[in-house]
């Protein structure tokens, strides 16, 4: 597996996949995609990087412990639901707003925050599993 070509290509492939996963995440509300799929794509990207170049560079690259990322995602998703309580709506009601951004109207919502939370949980948990399995003990 650790051929020169694979090891050379892997960082670029991973970057592209992560970028693509964010794209899939953001378009999810209106087109096929969403947090679960995006998260899986990003996790696969890290797994590929890990197989090609070893686990340590991956851990260096994502900086945080994957489980911490997952925990932050879970927190984010939970909080996204709490926001609606402040405007006297029941838990998990979606709130929407639009902002003007470089000449385009962009829809922002608590639902999007929730989906980002899902994305982070999936990325974190599955990357953590994959990396843990890629680390092998000496026997």
């Amino acid at each position: 597996m650790r051929t020169v070509i694979f090891r050379t290509v892997a960082p670029y492939l991973t970057s592209l996949m992560v970028l693509f996963s964010i794209f899939v995440l953001l378009r999810g509300h209106n087109e096929p995609g969403g947090g679960f799929i995006g998260g899986l794509i990003a996790a696969s990207a890290f797994a590929i990087y890990g197989i090609a170049c070893g686990v340590a560079p991956v851990r260096r690259a994502i900086h945080f412990h994957p489980m911490a990322i997952a925990a932050f995602g879970l927190f984010l998703s939970g909080m996204a639901g709490v926001l609606s309580i402040f405007v006297s709506r029941s838990y998990m009601s979606g709130l929407w707003t639009s902002v003007h951004f470089f000449g385009n109207w962009i829809d922002l919502s608590t639902v999007l925050i929730f989906d980002i939370g899902v994305y982070l949980v999936v990325v974190g948990a599955i990357t953590s599993i994959a990396l843990a399995l890629e680390e092998r003990d000496r026997d």
Binding site: R2, C53, G54, V55, E134, R136, D137, D139
Partner: peptide, 9 residues
């Protein structure tokens, strides 16, 4: 059984 990385370097 210490953990070791499979990073060849």
């Amino acid at each position: 059984q210490p953990i070791v990385d499979n990073d060849p370097d």
